[in-house]
Amino acid sequence: MARHEGRGMASVNYPIGMNLGGDPSQALIHSNPDGKFTVALSAIDLGQGMKQVSRQIAAETLGVPIEDVYVDTADSDTGPHDMGSFASRGTHRMGNAVIAAAREARGVLLDAAAEELEVNASDLVTDGRGNIHVRGAPSKTITVKATAQAAQFKQGKTIAGRGIFLIPLSAVDAETGEMNPNTAFAHACLVADVSVDDETGEVTVLRMTSAYELGRVINPRMVEQQLVGGAWMGISHALYETPEPYYPNPEHGPRDFNEYLMPGPGDIAPYHVTVLERPAPDGPFGGKGPGEMCANPVLPAIANAVYNAVGVRVDELPITPEKILRGIRANGGVKPGPRRGGAVNWR
């Protein structure tokens, strides 16, 4: 009866957006008479942060403070078509559509400001704090608010923009599988440290250490939300979850949260993430999308760590105590692998 520690790793990449393309997103942006902007979308926020990502991208592109932008989603009467929130496509596809819409609206805004200031629009810059300046002549300035009022009530201009982003659909070759799948890929590597009880077969995840390359990070706190929550889901997938524990036998499935097991707040492991940013050439500000991939490396890293700890390969998920105990018995006992490195370089 003993606990055995082990360490395993895995590295993965993940395609951003619908494979093959063919998944458009649209955005509309307009300004109130006082220069406050509304972004109208039909995109879905299921917790991943679609509203805030769109808001930051719109504010950055418009060149106005973030408080001056609100995102309204999703009402089919006001928000134009979007394929939906899946395939890690939100930031990449909708982000690009929002940029296009914001850029068009910004164009009208600067045109209106140019008319008020009697300069060329190409000489104007925004400061992100609600002002428009003439480049090189900081005293010559007008607020976004005054510009919007002038545009609407004096010049008869609508400060608005439309945006769409589409990577057109690719064909697939029947015989070779040749295709144009995705243009942006994110990357990750994750190390899991586990402890395996050779009497109960129970696996405890001691800590995890990872590095993710996600293109431009639009909001690091929200990336952290995705990566930390996704890693928890990865542990859950690796060790606990399935509605068919004896698959392909369909019987004996759980019916509720008493029977469908997931790690609780007392079962979580310390986790350190390092984020790298290699901007995607076609991403919004180079952004990719961390939403889906963040559970993927956890599953094999834990499986490999279990092997390193006790010498048992569990090739069928989830890695239950029963499978580990059967494996130890089949091997004639625990067979630990080589020790890999020392204490982690964090916390």
């Binding site: 590295s11 590597c189 190390v191 590095a211 390359e213 350190h272 370089n345």
Partner: peptide
């Protein structure tokens, strides 16, 4: 780069 950074942070030589 992801593998290198993860190895460094995990102290995996």
């Amino acid at each position: 780069e992801c593998v290198q950074v993860a190895a460094e942070k995990a102290n995996w030589p």
